[in-house]
């Protein structure tokens, strides 16, 4: 069975912090008026409570950033494959445009080369497939090659 002082000391933090029920507070105050030891303990608790640890500046923002990180990564995990697919599509499209530009028989000052039908070049002609490579370049004269390179650079 608890002694009165034990019961009082159990609830002292609640009373000192002002969170106790009025009846509890009255009972404790009445006890403290006649008990020096419990009054000393109440003063000690009041002393401790005067010195909470202050939260440093910037910690709230730091915590929010850190807490948001994993959640954002989890949220974006399902989106990543779509992102990769889109990026791959963009790369392929750009490559395709470049290949078509090289292969298309556009009007060009390179006489005799660009006027020649595209299908006439190489063993892959007419197959429907396009494999850029040395077959085309090997059939160019040195002059045609220089002109083509100059046009590509411009």
């Amino acid at each position: 069975m608890k002694r009165p002082c034990d019961e009082i000391r159990d609830v002292l933090p609640t009373v000192v912090s002002g969170r106790a029920e009025p009846a509890t507070e009255q009972a404790v105050q009445a006890h403290l008026a006649g008990c020096e030891a419990c009054r000393a303990e109440a003063e000690l608790i009041a002393l401790l409570r005067r010195h909470p640890v202050a939260v440093p500046n910037g910690l709230e923002e730091q915590v929010l950033l850190a807490a948001a990180g994993p959640r954002q990564r989890r949220a974006s995990r399902g989106f990543l494959p779509q992102l990769v697919a889109v990026a791959a599509a963009v790369v392929l499209t750009v490559l395709g445009i470049r290949l078509v530009r090289v292969a298309e028989p556009e009007p060009s000052p390179v006489a005799g080369f660009m006027d020649t039908p595209f299908q006439a070049f190489g063993p892959w002609a007419g197959s429907g497939a396009f494999t850029p490579g040395s077959v085309v370049l090997e059939e160019l004269t040195e002059e045609q090659l220089e002109l083509l390179l100059a046009e590509m650079e411009s």
């Binding site: 640890v53 939260v55 440093p56 910690l59 730091q62 915590v63 850190a66 807490a67 994993p70």
Partner: peptide
Amino acid sequence: SDVYDVAARVLGDRDLARDAAQDAFV
């Protein structure tokens, strides 16, 4: 403030308490 207070009392070090508070919330 409560989380930081507890972390600071356990660790007795302000910088470590920052890290612990962050870890706790994460």
